[in-house]
Design a protein around this nucleic acid. Sequence first.
RNA 1: GGCCCGGUAGUUCAAUGGAUAGAAUAGGAGUUUCCUAAACUCUAGAUACAAGUUCGAUUCUUGUCCGGGCUACCA
Length: 644
Amino acid sequence: MPAGFPKNTFMQIAQYLKALAAQALHALYGIETDAAQVTINETKPEFEGDYTIVLFQYVKQARKSPEAMGQEMGAWMLANSEENLTAFNVIKGFLNLSVADAYWIHFLENHYQPDYGRHAGNGKKVMVEYSSPNTNKPLHLGHLRNNFLGWSIAELYKWNGYDVRKTCIVNDRGVHICKSMLAWQKFGNGATPESTGMKGDHLVGDFYVQFENALRKEAAPLQEQLLAGESIAALDEAIAAKATLLFQKLQEAGLPAEKKAEITDELKDIARNATTLMQEVRQMLLKWEQGDEETINIWRMMNGWVYAGFDTTYNRIGSDFQTIYYESETYLLGKQYVDEGLAKGVFYKKEDGSVWIDLTAEGLDEKLVLRKDGTSVYITQDIGLAKRKYEDYPMEQSIYVIGDEQNYHMDVLQLICKKLGMPFADGIHHLSYGMVDLPTGRMKSREGTVVDADDLCDEMEKVAAAKTEELGKVEGFTQEELQQLYHTLGLGALKFFLLRVDPKKRMVFNPEESIDFHGFTGPFVQYSFARIQSALRKASWEQPTAPATLAADTVLQPLEKQLIVLLEQFPQVLHNACAEMNPSLVAIYAFTLASQFNSFYARHSITKAENESARQLRLHICALTAHVIQNSMQVLGIAVPARM
RNA sequence: GGCCCGGUAGUUCAAUGGAUAGAAUAGGAGUUUCCUAAACUCUAGAUACAAGUUCGAUUCUUGUCCGGGCUACCA
C-alpha cells in the first residue's frame, strides 16, 4: 500500500483527485476553489490516462495557456499524489491522469464484503409513499412504474444509511367506490370471487366498468337533449339555468373548436349527473357517510375482495409497506387545520362560507380548501394526512411517488403546509414520474388498451419459460426451481425495463421490446451474474472473510482494470442515484458493469488463467463483480439467479 | 388563453457547459476443439428550426414549429 493512501475507504479516487487538484490550484496560482467545483471526467478511451481534470475554467485566473497550466498542474499533482498517480499528459485544457495499478489492486484486496456499497446508518428518517391504488380497479402498467420506482427509492435510501418507512394511501371511499358497489347490487346477482373464480380486484373492477357502461347508456339521450337546447327533468333550477347558458354560448358564431368541445363536455357532464344512476350513487355515498349498516357491509365486503387481490399482486411484484393509510380513516383529518389557517390569516372565507387560499403571489391560483357546505376537498385531506404521517414517523424527508399530472397539486400542497408552518413542509418531495405510453399512444380504459399488471406478469413469465426451455441449460432443476427462475427472469425483465429510464420522463412501453432478453435488459445482467457464479463454482471459490493479499507480480490487463475502475465507483453511483432520486442511474451502471464483464469473460480465461497470480486476480474481480451486480439489482428490486 | 414539461440514429433510451454526441435494438459482416453463444467482435446510422451568451452549447437565454400535461366546490 502506497504511503498516504486515502485513509477513508469510502473515499474514491475521483474525489481524492478533485481535492488534490484544488490544492494544486491553490499552491500554484493562489486560486481558492472547493474540491466539489473541480470538473473531473473519466478519460476518453482514445487518450492515455484514467481520469481527466478540465482546466479551461481556471485559465483566466492563472494567466497561463491551458497547455502550460496543464503541465504545471500535472507535475504538482504527480509529486504530491503520494504514489497514487504514475503519469500525466496534457491535451489542450485537459489534464489526463494515470492512477497507479497499486491503487486498484489495493482496492480489490480490501473490498471483499458482500454488502459492498452499503453506507453506515445516519439515523435520519425518510418516508416513502408509493403505489396508492384506487379500490375500484386492478393495478395496471402505470401502477407498476410507480410501485417499482417507490420500492427502489426506498431501497436507495436504505443503502445510503437512512431509516425508511414505506407507506401507501388506499383510496377506498368516494363516488367511484360507490359506483362499483351499486353495479354489484344491480347486476351482480350475488357474485363473489369464490363463485366466479375471479381475483377480487378484477371482479370489482368489472363492476365499475359495468356501471360506466350503464351510465353511458342512460346519459346518451339526455346529452342529446341538452345539446339540442331542450331542457331535461331532474335538474335543479341553478343547474338548468347553467345548462341553458352553456347552450346559448355554444350557438355563438366563430367559437373556436377547442372551446366548443369544452362546452360540449360540460353539458354532457350535466346530463351524466342528472341520470338516476348518478342520483343513486350519491344517495349511496350519503348513506356511507352516515354509517348506514347495509352500505357499510357491502363496502367492507367488496373492499375485502380488492385487498385480497392486491395482496396477491403486491406479493408477486415485491411491493411492501410498513404503514397503510386508508382514506376512509383519514379524509376528515384536514378540517381542523382550516380553522388554524383562518386564525393565522393563511386562509380566507368567502360570503358563501367556502374557504380559500390565495397563491397568486407564488404564481399559482386561488385554491379552495373547504366547500361551502363545510366538507373537505382533496387538498384538505392531504394536509391532514401529511400531518398524520409526521406524527407517526417524524421524518426529515417525506417522499411522494405520484405521476407528473399532479405536479401542480403537489406544489400547492407543499406551499400550504409551509404557510401553515408545518415542521415537515420543507421535507416534502414529490417524486414526479412520467406516464407510460403504448406505441399507439396513451392507455385508455374506454378503448380497452390498458395493460393489466397481472396479465403482464403472466406474459413475462411465459416468455421466460419458453426462452429457457429453448436454450435447455437448466438440467437438474426441480419444477419448483423452474417456476422460481421464470418468475425471477420475467419480473426482472419487466422491472428493469421500467426502471432503466429517467423517472421524470414519459416513456413508451413496447410489449415486444420489453420481453426481449438481449441487450440493455434485466436478463442480460442476470445472465452475467449466472456466468460468474458458474466460474466461481468451477474454481471452488469461497467467500473470503478478510482482506486478500494478491501476489506482488500481479499485473492488470486493460479489461481487468476497466472492471475494477467501475467497481470502485459503485458507492458513488448509489449516492448519486439517491440524491437525484433516480434508480435508472443504477440500472445503467449495472448494465455497463455486466457488459464489460462479458467482454472480459470472452477475452480472458478465469479458471485457466496464464498463471496463479492472474487466476487469483480474476477470481477476486469475479467475486466483487458478482456482489456489485447483485447489490445493484437488489436496489432495483430484482433477484439474480445462480444458474439460468 | 395562462402555467409546466418534452423534441437526440429507423425505433427505445444516455450524455454535472467540455475532447470525435454514447448504448441497446433493428440492418450488414464475423467468432464456439477452451469457465454458460441469453455471449463476444467489427460495421453503418441522430442533436426539430433560427438567433444569442462563450474559449467551448444536446445542455443556458429568446423566438418559431410540433407533441404532452395541468388549469373542478372530482379524487
